[in-house]
């Protein structure tokens, strides 16, 4: 009975793995098709589409543009998110619940609504559509994720360490820089990687706040609207490999640092 259940459940799991992986595999495969038309079966193969991606100046500049946006917006999110987490964690004050609610608000607003709310607000702030506007929107949107991750880590910091530092004469800032901050580094790095990926993959905010220069997802979207071609597969695969590689590396990294600090 339980054995049968187990086999059935494991079949469901592997079917789910297939559902999750097969579309991406097919997409990568289609980038090797030696034809302008997307579709199976693939009769002859070529590497030209993939080689073409790196020769295409537009794709390369778009890729750089996306990476710069991701890095800058992540820097802002990490500083602000950590600051909010330090304020909220383990402190009781009037309005704490309200501040916490507002902190996670950007993560709860559905994508399209968040994008147009940012678009309207950018006009109020006088930010022109373009790089600055995208960086700002990504930064605000990603703050809740940093705050939550850092708060979780902060809640496991033994209070006695801070007290010991203070007893030995460290002022609050030095105690933070020498005790709290080093303890938070794994969480901050993990959150940074997550923000980098969120920003790099984001479409809807980049689309509504962008100027003439597209980010990578916006470029793929624009090309898709004018028709499918193996060229798009090659571009999408580059984005896929980049994000998956960073994701896997980050996963291994955070697991290793977690093992080091709490054995």
């Amino acid at each position: 009975m339980t054995r049968g259940n187990r086999i059935l459940l494991s079949c469901i799991y592997w079917a789910f793995v297939l559902y999750v992986f097969v579309p991406l595999m097919l997409m990568i495969l289609m980038g090797f098709k030696d034809s302008k038309f997307i579709g199976f079966p693939i009769k002859s193969w070529t590497l030209d589409w993939y080689l073409g991606v790196f020769a295409d100046a537009e794709v390369v500049s778009t890729l750089t543009y996306s990476v710069v946006i991701a890095v800058l917006s992540t820097l802002i999110s990490v500083v602000v998110g950590t600051w909010i987490a330090v304020l909220l964690e383990g402190r009781k004050f009037l309005g704490r619940a309200a501040i916490f609610g507002l902190t996670i608000l950007p993560a709860l607003v559905p994508g399209i609504i968040s994008a147009i709310a940012f678009r309207i607000y950018a006009r109020l702030l006088g930010i022109e559509p373009g790089m600055g506007a995208i960086i700002w929107a990504h930064a605000v949107h990603n703050v809740p994720f940093v705050a939550l991750v850092v708060m979780a880590r902060l809640s496991t910091l033994p209070k006695s360490q801070i007290e010991a530092a203070r007893d030995l004469g460290a002022d609050p800032i030095i105690a933070f820089l020498r005790i709290t901050f080093p303890y938070l580094i794994p969480a901050i790095l993990g959150a940074s990687i997550f923000c980098l990926l969120l920003s790099f993959d984001d479409f809807v905010r980049s689309f509504f706040l962008g100027g003439y220069e597209p980010t990578l997802p916006v470029l793929i979207f624009a090309k898709l609207r004018s028709g499918m071609s193996p060229e798009i597969n090659a571009i999408a695969t580059v984005a896929l490999v980049l994000t998956a590689a960073i994701g896997i590396w980050a996963e291994r990294f955070t697991r290793r640092t977690n093992k080091d600090t709490n054995p």
Binding site: F21, L197, F200, D202, I220, L224, A239, T243, A244, G247
Partner: peptide, 9 residues
């Protein structure tokens, strides 16, 4: 792993 890949892709 596939979860890290973006919406458009």
């Amino acid at each position: 792993i596939p979860f890290w890949v973006g919406e458009i892709v």
